[in-house]
Design a protein around this nucleic acid. Structure first.
Lengths: 243, 243
DNA sequence: CGACCCATTGATCGGTCTCAAACATTGTGG
DNA sequence: CCACAATGTTTGAGACCGATCAATGGGTCG
């Protein structure tokens, strides 16, 4: 139970988090920027606030800035021609939003709950990256982190059964879980997103998500406290699926 | 990793390809390194040759170097505890192999056919990245490129029907296709990998891949010339799924 | 040229999607 | 503060699609 340290995040300053390319910290998520780097980003950035449902950036839109989340949860998604929506990632404080190609956003980014984020104009950011190698390295580290994360997501999607996708999903959220007093095996996961959003992330129907979760409850591995709090009773089953 | 031999010098020079972060080239895949950058990599690198089936690096192994492919095709995969194999990517000349975390490879990389690649020792590469901002930026560009590619792959996997996954797969290979003389609509795709490898990449059984391909043949959209050459008769259907 | 591996084809089974309806939660205005 | 309305969630029944198992045919490499 070493995690749970969002203490480092003041809502007022940029912060970049991820697993560093250099080892250390036992493979845990750490700050990729020192104070100087954060100050530099703060210089060019503007703190912005988004209510739930707000679109930070839309697929195909000409890029003007990327965002660094300091509070709240953001989802990025893409729409397919048959009207389905695929959620590519849930982004937390310390993450960057705004992958682009040919200076156009690839995905739509939407606030899942109330979000505060630093808006970093792309032109200023590029100049900064050109002249600050440390910042450049931090962004490279972050990109590699996101790449690893996306690969894990991909492996989740390759699982055929809803049950296993759900278990891997819960496992990915485990690091962010708060420990339960008196039960080191258990933890309470906070899921701010709706069932439909989970379904779009897992490539399932919301019905399948619901059925899967309740099946795990019946098996005695989970307990639901409302819709957005999940108590993991046996963390062993989850850990087995890290692959 | 016992079956690799140093290769002749003329087999290639380091080359890094991808869609640049800066626009230009109409979003096409371009060289991310200038001559100077390539020379720098050549200085620390060793050209190496791998026969089909050779393991360039194994999941969980302590990292010693990453590879820059100059010829041939590499697949990266991860094994799940139920014995299934998920292929994360097919890597072509101009690509990098060796994503790691905590200085251990995340995935296994295997040569699909005869491969030549530059072996770049990680320590030397890190030093180079520290003192050369241009190289650093090129690697950041490449990481973003791979991230976009992985997201496309993810969206493919989220498709429910085998037919659509196959179409998106062919569409991703389209840029590498050689045009057919006299038919601007058509192209010949080269698929060096086996059906099983395609299946592991698409999250399908090899039977489903076979059935899907032949269904497209029956519809008159494809023609097979042997197992590794696919002629695309109507490129329109593919383009519709760019996702 | 032969042996092995891979690719194809066929039949059955299982799991999720879909459609539909009951239920719970959230947000709103009186 | 409560009641109502609008979403969002859960549960059920049937259809569809790919996985699996099994067998045949074709390529490839020694």
């Amino acid at each position: 139970m070493k995690d749970h340290q969002p203490a480092a995040q003041q809502a007022g300053r940029p912060i970049l988090q991820g697993v560093s390319l250099r080892g250390g910290a036992g493979g845990g998520r750490v700050a990729l920027l020192d104070a100087a780097g954060r100050d530099e980003l703060a210089t060019i950035g503007t703190l912005t606030r988004f209510p739930r449902g707000a679109i930070l950036q839309a697929e195909g839109e000409k890029i003007s800035a990327i965002f660094n989340i300091t509070e709240g949860l953001v989802k990025t998604y893409r729409l397919t021609e048959d009207g389905k929506r695929h959620v590519l990632a849930f982004l937390f404080p310390g993450d960057l939003v705004g992958l682009y190609e040919d200076y156009r956003y690839l995905n739509t980014a939407e606030a899942v709950n109330t979000v505060t984020a630093y808006r970093l104009p792309i032109a200023a950011l590029e100049k900064l990256l050109e002249r600050d190698p440390a910042l450049n390295l931090a962004f490279l580290s972050k990109a590699c982190h996101d790449l690893r994360q996306t690969q894990r997501h991909e492996i989740m999607l390759a699982r055929r059964e809803a049950r296993q996708r759900l278990l891997m999903f819960l496992n990915m959220l485990a690091p962010q879980a708060s420990a339960i007093a008196g039960n080191p095996q258990g933890a309470v996961l906070s899921l701010p997103m709706r069932r439909l959003e989970i379904a779009d992330y897992l490539g399932l129907s919301p019905e399948a998500v619901s059925r899967g979760l309740h099946a795990l409850v019946r098996e005695g591995k989970l307990r639901l406290h409302g819709l957005h709090q999940i108590e993991v009773l046996d963390r062993g089953d989850l850990a087995a699926l890290t692959g």
